[in-house]
Simulated assay, not measured.
Amino acid sequence: MATTNADSEPAGNSLSRGSALEQLPPRDTTTLVRTVRDRLRLAIALAEIPDGKLNQVQVARQLGVSRMPIRAAIPELVAEGLLESLPGGGVAVRPLTETDVRQVYEVRLALESQAVRSAAEHGSDWNLRQIQTIVDTHGRAFASYDAAKLLAADREFHMAILSASQNQHYQRSIVPVWSIVERAMVSVLHITTVFDNAWTEHAEIAGPLCDRDPDAAEAAIRRHLGDAAEKLVTSLAATIEA
C-alpha cells in the first residue's frame, strides 16, 4: 500500500498519525458502513490506496471488518468518482485527471461564490464569528498539522461558510465533489507555502464576511478558488509527467 512519506508532508509535520486504514472498533452495522466509507475516502485522498483494482480482502483485513461494509460503501464512492466499476467485476481507484480538478473547481466556484454572498447578507453574527475563529485557530496551528489535519482544517473553513449561508442545499451539493477536492489537495501538501498562502486568503475572505460586504467577500473567494485550481492542475500535471 502506498503511504504518505516525509517528502509529501509540510515542514514540521509529524508522521505519527495512524493510517486511515487502521483497524476499526466494533460498532453497529449502519455506523460501521458509514465509518468504512469515510476511512476509504480518506485513504484514497491520502494515496494510501493506490490507483488500480481495489483489494477488498486486504482493506477489510486492515480495518478489521468483514467484506460486507466494504461492499456496502463502494456504490457511494463510485458515485463520488473515487472508484470505478471494472468490466470483469470489482472496482478500481479511479485515476485523478486535470479535467476532474478543473470541473470540480467550476462547481466550487459556482456554489461558494453564491454561498459567501448569502453568508455575508444572511449569516448570523454567531456564524460569522465562528468563521473568524476558525481562521484564527487554524492559522496559528496549521504548520504542525499532518496531511489529514490540513484537509480537515480547510474543510471546516469552507463548510462553515456554506453553513452560514442559511441555505442547507449549498452544503449538501458540495459533499459529492469534496472527495475529489481533497484528493487533489494532497498533491500540493509538500509545498509548504501553499497552505500558508491559503490561510492568508481565508483571512481575506473572513474579513469582508464579518463586515457583511458581499461583493468583497465574493471577489476574495473567487481569487482564492481560482488560484487553488491553477496550482492543483499544475501540480497534478507534474506528477503525471513524472
Rank of each mutant, 00 (worst) to 15 (best):
W178V: 03
R155T: 14
R61M: 09
A79P: 02
A147Q: 15
D154S: 12
A216W: 00
F195G: 12
V177K: 00
A206Y: 00
T4W: 09
D125Y: 03
A220Q: 07
W199V: 09
E48Q: 04
R71K: 14
A153Q: 12
A60C: 10
V186G: 00
L40W: 04
N13D: 15
V101T: 07
H169V: 12
H224C: 03
Q58P: 00
A43D: 02
V177A: 10
S124N: 10
R172P: 01
S118I: 01
V57R: 13
Q56G: 10
V181E: 07
V101P: 04
N5A: 14
P87R: 00
V57E: 07
S187C: 02
P26S: 14
D196R: 10
W178N: 09
K149F: 02
S173D: 12
F195W: 15
C210Q: 15
D28E: 13
Y145R: 13
T3A: 15
H158L: 13
D211T: 03
G88E: 07
G226Q: 07
V186R: 12
T3L: 15
I191P: 00
S187L: 11
A152F: 11
L83H: 02
G139S: 01
P50F: 05
D100L: 04
E84L: 10
I240Y: 06
L15F: 11
S179G: 14
A115V: 05
F142P: 00
Q23N: 12
A6Q: 13
A160V: 03
D213I: 02
A153Y: 06
T133Q: 12
A148H: 13
A45G: 08
G90R: 09
L21F: 14
V91Y: 10
S187I: 08
D125G: 02
T193K: 08
V33A: 14
I221D: 00
A45W: 04
L111A: 11
Y105L: 01
D38L: 12
I174G: 00
L54F: 05
S16Q: 07
D125I: 06
A217L: 08
V194T: 13
R140Q: 15
